[in-house]
Amino acid sequence: MSGRFIEVEDLGKQYEAAAPGTPPALQSVSLAIEAGEFVAVMGPSGSGKSTFMNLVGLLDTPTGGTYRLNGQNVAGLTTDELAHVRNRVFGFVFQGFNLLKRITASENVALPMVYAGTPGAERRRRAGDLLAKVGLAPYADAMPNRLSGGQQQRVAIARSLANHPQLILADEPTGNLDTQTSAEIMALFTTLNRETGVTILLVTHEHDIAQYANRLIRFKDGLVVHDGAVVHEGAA
């Protein structure tokens, strides 16, 4: 396998619905992310950080540039192959949790495995393990709306880990949570990154949250304006 884990070159996105004359949501971004990194993406609203995240997560298609994943240009993938990558290589954690409301926590965690074709017994076993890992073992049969925001986000994190992903994409995962819970969620991400070596791409607009990462990329007006190691407060 040649090349790096994630490598984007001149990546751009112009929304069709945008008013004429509006600058593209993402102008031109070139960067690489190595396996095992914990990257925080920051920037003000409209800076293109979420657009970047959606493109990397294969939830959206770029209007310019190239994106190589493990050395392969994703532009050539069919929609089924894209679904396969999202299922096996990525795990998503969203600001609004995005759990299915009417099925249990455990069933939510098992859902990516349903699409991976994992047998039922194995799904239930692994969903139980993952919920235990995020500290929610007693809530396996709870409906998501019976859980607190922090608990729901833990369920979402457990779901993102279901198929042993290489990359977790977290879009403002603490945006709806209080400071204490945010710290707990970020500690969970840090542990996952250290112990399993899973790459984490975290979008946030909170400086405190970005501090948990090892590398910080700042976006502004659809361009990368800063890319470097996180200077940990107190460590300097």
């Binding site: 679904a83 999202r86 995005n98 759990l99 859902l111 990516p112 699409y115």
Partner: peptide, 16 residues
């Protein structure tokens, strides 16, 4: 539609 979005994000193919 949102549920469909969630299912697709976590790996459901169109035909699923």
């Amino acid at each position: 539609t949102r549920e469909i979005g969630i299912r697709m994000a976590i790996g459901a193919r169109q035909r699923d």
